[in-house]
């Protein structure tokens, strides 16, 4: 973990309301899939923005972000050459065991971006099926990456791209058809993760979910970003997560 001074090389729209920013660093950074960076947008914004690392190639790091509030609005306007501080890599990330051959990725909303990093890390060594849900066809992105998976099922809430269903329904459908993974890795809105958790519990599947929470320090010191564990304790999303075993967190 280090606070890198990162220079924007590219910052462009990739789908409706979604932008991808690529930074150049002055040294290599080793990143595990599912880890995130805390981006300082500067000015009157005292908190950094936690964004999943989508791609890490040597000295180049790409984040994909949805425009939500003032910080991402500001980030969107920054052109090539702009230098920002990015604290990374943060969090634990996703990890697939040696004996887990078949991996299912279930993602929706901004949760699709950390899953791109999983596919990049495990796509060659594992049999990966990706079930990705978008709001509508204008929100579709990352397809060129997901198409590299053994299987890619892209769906939308309104049926304007792929079938009309959500990512969990797409996964459930394939499960019913007999495509049973050794491990499920998921990221997306809480209602989606809740539905997935119920499904994997019923099916007895091993599942990991990546959570989102508002953060202060991003490194585990301030206890701002906690989630509830099923054992009654609290865990820090930034340091103990953002990836948790689905049966260990309360959603």
């Amino acid at each position: 973990m280090k606070d890198y001074i990162a220079t924007i090389v590219k910052n462009e729209q990739i789908a409706e309301n979604i932008h991808a920013v690529t930074f150049a660093l002055d040294e290599d950074v080793k990143v595990r899939c599912g880890q995130f960076g805390d981006i300082a947008v500067g000015g009157t914004h005292l908190l950094r923005r936690p964004i999943a690392i989508c791609k890490a190639e040597g000295r180049e790091i790409t984040f994909c972000y949805q425009i939500k509030g003032e910080g991402t609005q500001k980030l969107k306007t920054m052109g090539a050459g702009t230098r920002l501080n990015v604290l990374m890599p943060l969090g634990n990330g996703f990890y697939v065991e040696k004996n887990e051959k078949k991996v299912a990725l279930v993602g929706g909303g901004v949760g699709v971006f950390p899953l791109v990093s999983v596919l990049r890390e495990y796509g060659a060594s594992k049999e990966v099926s990706a079930y990705i849900g978008y709001r509508n066809k204008n929100a579709v992105c990352g397809v060129e990456e997901f198409e590299k998976a053994t299987k890619f099922v892209g769906v939308t809430d309104d049926g304007s791209y792929g079938e009309r269903m959500n990512a969990v329904q797409a996964f459930a459908k394939d499960l019913e058809a007999g495509n049973r993974p050794d491990v499920v890795l998921a990221c997306g809105p809480t209602p989606m993760l809740r539905a997935l958790k119920a499904l994997v519990e019923k099916e007895g599947l091993n599942c990991y979910v990546s959570l989102e929470e508002r953060m202060g320090c991003g490194i585990g010191a301030c206890l701002v970003c906690v989630c509830d564990l099923t054992n009654g304790k609290k865990a820090r999303v930034c340091k103990d997560g953002p990836v948790f075993k689905a049966d260990e967190v309360t959603l």
């Binding site: 005292l46 929470e213 906690v226």
Partner: peptide, 14 residues
């Protein structure tokens, strides 16, 4: 402690 969210930002302060 309290339930989340536990933090918010406003220009120049948190």
């Amino acid at each position: 402690g309290n339930p989340v969210p536990r933090i918010a930002e406003s220009r120049g302060v948190i």
